[in-house]
Every structure is written in C-alpha cells, then in structure tokens.
Design a protein around this nucleic acid. Sequence first.
DNA 1: AACTGACCATGATCTACATCAACAAAGCAG
DNA 2: CTGCTTTGTTGATGTAGATCATGGTCAGTT
Lengths: 249, 249
Amino acid sequence: MAQLNNVTPLFKELAKMEHEHNIACQDCSLFRLCLPLGLHNNDLIKLDKIIKRSQNYKRGQPLFTEKSNFTSLYVVRSGSFKTTISASDGRDQVTGFYFPGEFVGLDAIHEQAYLSSAVALETSSVCELPFDHLQELGKSVPELQVKVLMRLSKELSVDKSLMLLLGKKTADEKLATYLLSLSKRFKERGFSATEFQLSMSRSDIANHLGLAVETVSRLFSRFQEDDLLTINGKLLLLRNIDRLNALCG
Amino acid sequence: MAQLNNVTPLFKELAKMEHEHNIACQDCSLFRLCLPLGLHNNDLIKLDKIIKRSQNYKRGQPLFTEKSNFTSLYVVRSGSFKTTISASDGRDQVTGFYFPGEFVGLDAIHEQAYLSSAVALETSSVCELPFDHLQELGKSVPELQVKVLMRLSKELSVDKSLMLLLGKKTADEKLATYLLSLSKRFKERGFSATEFQLSMSRSDIANHLGLAVETVSRLFSRFQEDDLLTINGKLLLLRNIDRLNALCG
DNA sequence: AACTGACCATGATCTACATCAACAAAGCAG
DNA sequence: CTGCTTTGTTGATGTAGATCATGGTCAGTT
C-alpha cells in the first residue's frame, strides 16, 4: 500500500511546490478513485485550494480520537488506517479499515464530533478537507455535494454487509469474506488482487470480524493447509479465489 | 406508533386537499423531526411539491426489495419498517428498524440500486422522495443537500454502534442496548420512553441482534424476573432504565 | 549481543449461546 | 366456534468458538 513511505526531503519540497503552484489533485495517482474525478477544471482548482495535504502519520499515530472535535473529513493518500469505537467499559470494535482514496470521518458529520478514533496502521498520509470549507464550496458546486453523498451511501452499504457478516456468518465465512474484500480493494487501486501485504495485525482483523485472535490464527493455518492461500507473516497470497468465494456464504 | 392507522375516507380526502392546496409538511406532526425543518418557506414549498405521500402499506408488505430498482428515498410517515439484506444462501440480517421521520433507502444511492429490502411491520405509510427530483432541487437549495448528508451521517454512526453491539456485546447487553435505543426513539417522537408496543416480532429482534429467538425469549423472561421490565406479548414496560443502562456495557 | 514487549501459533479446556424438542397462546380464515 | 398457522416460551443437549496456557518469532532499544 505504502506509496509515499520513503519520503525524502527533496520529495517533500517537490510536493510543497506542487501544492503551491499547480493542481496537485490532477497529478495524484489516486485521481481516478478520488473525490475530484469528473469535476470541471475550475471547480477542481477551488477544491484543490481547500485541501490540506498532511505530513506522514507513523504507525499507531491517531488521525483523530473520540475526544478530539470535528473539523475535517480525511481522504487517505497513502498507507492505511483503522477506525474504532469504544464501549463504556473499554472494549472496542474496529469499525473499518481505510485505504488510499477512501474517506475517513464521515460518521462525525452529524454530531459534529468524532464518535470513533482513527489510527494509522503504517506510515501514512491524508488529504484533509476542512468541513466548513467543503460545505461552502458545495453550495456553488452541487456535483461536489453529490460526490460526498455517494461516499456516505457507499460506506453505509459496506456497513450493512458487515452487519450481515457479524450477525450471521461463521468464522470461516467471516475471514474468507474479509480477505476477498481486501483483494477487491487492492485490485481497484491497481495492486495485485492475489498477493499483498496485510497492514493490520491479526488482532485488528479478529476484532473487526468479531472473533478471537487465536481463531484468526488457526483459520489462516487451516486455509493454508487447504491450499486456499499462503500466509507468511503479513504477506498474503490468495491461491484459490473461487473456493474462497464459495466459502463466503 | 401508528398515527394514521385509522384512516377514514374523510381523512384521506382532507389529506388530498391539503396536499393540493397547502403545504402538507407544515401541518405534519413529524415536522420538527423531519427533513423540511428549518427550510425557508419557498424552499419548503418546492420540496413539498416533489413529495409523494403513499397509501398505507400493510404488515409484511414490501416498500422495496433487493430486486426492485432505485428511484426514491422514503421517510416513514406512520407505522414502522424493517430492512434486511440477504447472503447468497438465503440467510438474512435485519439491518435496521425505521420509525416515523426516519429515512429508508439511503444505502441505495451509491449503487443506484436497493441492496436491501424494506418491509412494513404494521400498517404504515411513507413520504416518497424521488431521488432525481431531490437532487435537482438540491442544486438550488444547498441546505436540503446538507440535511440529507446529515441523515446519512447519522445512520452511519448508528450502524457503527451496531457493529460494536454485534461484535463485542453479550446477549444481555445486546437486548438492554436495543430496548434503550427504542425507548430513546419513542421519546423523541413524543411517546412514552417507558411503555410502548413492539411492532417487530421476537424473531426480528433476535435476527437484528445476532441471537436466536429462544435467547431473546429467555432474556425477556429473565429481565422480567429481575424487575427490569414487564413484557406482555408485544407491550413492553421498562421498569428500571438505570439498571438497564448499566447493563449495556 | 542481550533485553523487552508486541505479535503470532497451537494445544487443552470451558462456556455462552445455538440447536433441538415439545408445547402454549394468539391471530385468522372459513 | 373450529381448525390451522404463526409466534412465543421453556427445558434439555450440543458445539463453535472463546479463553487459558505455553512457547516461539520478530522489531526496536540499550
């Protein structure tokens, strides 16, 4: 995933120049996956102006927490993040993983407060969209509003599927479903659909799927024995997508 | 819940006149919970014009199904609905219950197709908002767009909480959480927070919470023995909100 | 190189809840 | 009212996956 992990001072300087003088979005490798796609050129320029491009977040570093107050939506530019919500007794649920081009923080709009925390899983960066600026711009660029609407709606349907997973699926089905969803998202981003690096720990996966870490560990082992995949630490190779698909239920 | 269940021909006639000649929204008992709240008067009139007020749906009747194609968003006007998504093998998950003033169908926007089904739990009616009209209107009334955005964001945060429930909570915690969420929603609508009719079956509740029907039945019995509530068929009386709250985890 | 703490794998045991079974109650059609 | 289907309750039993326990590996630090 990490596209900008090896950031050199030179690169930073270049990025800064780009931000100041050009339309950075247009040259971004994520352009076709991202918010600006399809906007008219002058609208794009306006959008580009309100975007703040972040420095890198290191593994474990929070983008926001349940305490911090809502200012911005974020789009992952490189790396990956997880979001979690906490019960009052400290148990928490990993509510999602976010990859380049995906929005983080959409559920905070309503209460104007983050109800979840977002944490970098590896060295990562984001584009920050100050929400008030975005709203202001949205008034004159309805297409932009629609695009944000679409993102919200998409996340909603992802979450509904996750409810099905959490409520009805067996451990095997859960893991198979999860791995294929990752595969699909890597593919969309131009990476291999069958071979990739897991940026999240077993424990994050387990938590997200409503399982124990041990169960996830055992499942990886069993899937490997069944020639469904090869797993070596965090490097995953999917060997039989069809059978994995059949396993999803 | 049912506010318009005893619809007489006279009433229907009145409603029709109102629709034709006045701004029906303004006189709707749901006004302060609903979409139009806070819109300028002439914007309200425009919105009012694109709303189609439905006849009654009977218990079990679908508002839309996973097959039907996307045309409209719906706001519950009276009664209640459940939404479900299905796995390929027929298992399904109740993804939500919807009460007057709440939006149904928001997750369909992105794919321009309903990915879930919505079914009336009792005699119910809706206001239909044809999505293309709504979008058109949204271009000239940005406040409207924002309101829809807010609804989406709210549903998103509800769904995230549900993930926590499904993934991490015990059966007791699940039911307590669920009952309190119902209580809160009834209260918002001006009904009693402690005494209400469950419009959904035990099996719908169980499904929604990721439990077996039998478990829900036993929990109701046990909660009753513990003086937390009294349940008589579908009539529920919450006797100790504080202790229920403590049970939520 | 040795130390530390997070992460991962795997076996042994336990338990919350599902499943199975049988019956009661309630809605509903004729 | 009578039979019939759906819905709900309660008890007995089973099991998927949690929990507990142990040891191994790897990345970062001193």
